[in-house]
């Protein structure tokens, strides 16, 4: 598993652990569903997805330690960025 996919997997594990919190269960499930659709893409197989995987991992750690709306919003924002960038042509340059 590449570095980006590894970090993404760790972030997803953190986010999945939010399922015990009824305030964020739905949002966490939605985020996991979106990430499942992205995790095997070239974006994460290459280094192109590493910065966002890193950001998502950090945001998920923050959310675990302090479960509140702004931290959940940050996770959703990064996931949106992942969806925007993962399929963009020319993401990986040679």
């Amino acid at each position: 598993m590449g570095r980006a996919q590894d970090l993404l997997a760790k972030a997803m594990t953190n986010i999945e652990s939010l399922s015990g919190n009824s305030d964020y269960n739905d949002k966490a499930s939605s985020v996991i569903e979106k990430l499942n659709a992205q995790k095997d893409k070239f974006f994460f197989q290459s280094l192109a997805g590493l910065p966002l995987a890193n950001l998502l991992f950090k945001a998920s750690e923050k959310m675990i330690s302090d479960q509140n709306d702004p931290n959940m919003d940050e996770i959703e924002k990064i996931v949106q960025q992942i969806e925007d960038k993962a399929d963009a042509p020319g993401t990986v340059l040679t």
Binding site: F42, S46, A86, V92, L93, T94
Partner: peptide, 16 residues
């Protein structure tokens, strides 16, 4: 020529 990578890669058609 590398003309195809930026189209094939994001679609998962090529692996790294």
């Amino acid at each position: 020529c590398l003309g195809c990578g930026s189209w094939m890669n994001p679609r998962g058609i090529f692996e790294p």
